[in-house]
């Protein structure tokens, strides 16, 4: 079965979405990621969407769900690499990804996760929750 790979980088997990996601693949990713957060005791998840040409409400909902599930499992999610055209479209679509933190690239996302871990929390308050 087709799967999106999840890489472990120290206490973080990195997912790079590089295919045009169909629905089943998105659901598999949610399941795999929550399993890995628990198994690897991950404190943060970076989702790289720089290859995604569009984010529709289905993918947006999946990203929001992953962020919410991670938060419950004591890990924080940062979405990195959104293309400008995708950002413009997403906001016009009416989807502002509430509760999801974003960074411009993987490096900045990693910095964000590290600094929020270093502050002692896992960023729950910062995420507006």
């Amino acid at each position: 079965m087709e799967r999106i790979p999840i890489l472990k980088m120290n206490e973080f997990l990195l997912v790079s979405i590089q295919v045009d996601m169909h629905d089943r693949l998105a659901m598999t990713l949610q399941d795999d990621l929550t399993d890995r957060i628990v198994r690897d005791r991950a404190r943060g998840v970076l989702i790289d969407i720089s290859s995604l040409e569009i984010v529709d409400s289905f993918i947006g909902r999946m990203i929001g769900n992953i962020a919410a599930m991670s938060r419950v499992l004591d890990a924080e999610t940062v979405v990195v690499g959104m293309r400008p055209a995708v950002a413009i479209t997403l906001v016009e679509l009416g989807l502002a990804l509430p509760g999801v933190r974003t960074s411009l690239n993987v490096d900045k996302g990693m910095e964000l996760l590290r600094s929020s871990l270093a502050r002692g929390g896992n960023g729950h308050r910062d995420a507006g929750r």
């Binding site: 569009i54 529709d56 400008p84 055209a85 479209t89 679509l93």
Partner: peptide, 28 residues
């Protein structure tokens, strides 16, 4: 559908933001 709409949008000469909007609408 997304892929074919994208090809059509490119062919028509839509810019990247216009392409992204119509492909996203098609997906919804």
């Amino acid at each position: 559908v997304r892929q074919v709409v994208r090809m059509r949008a490119v062919e028509i000469g839509f810019n990247l933001v216009e392409q992204t909007k119509i492909v996203t609408a098609a997906s919804e």
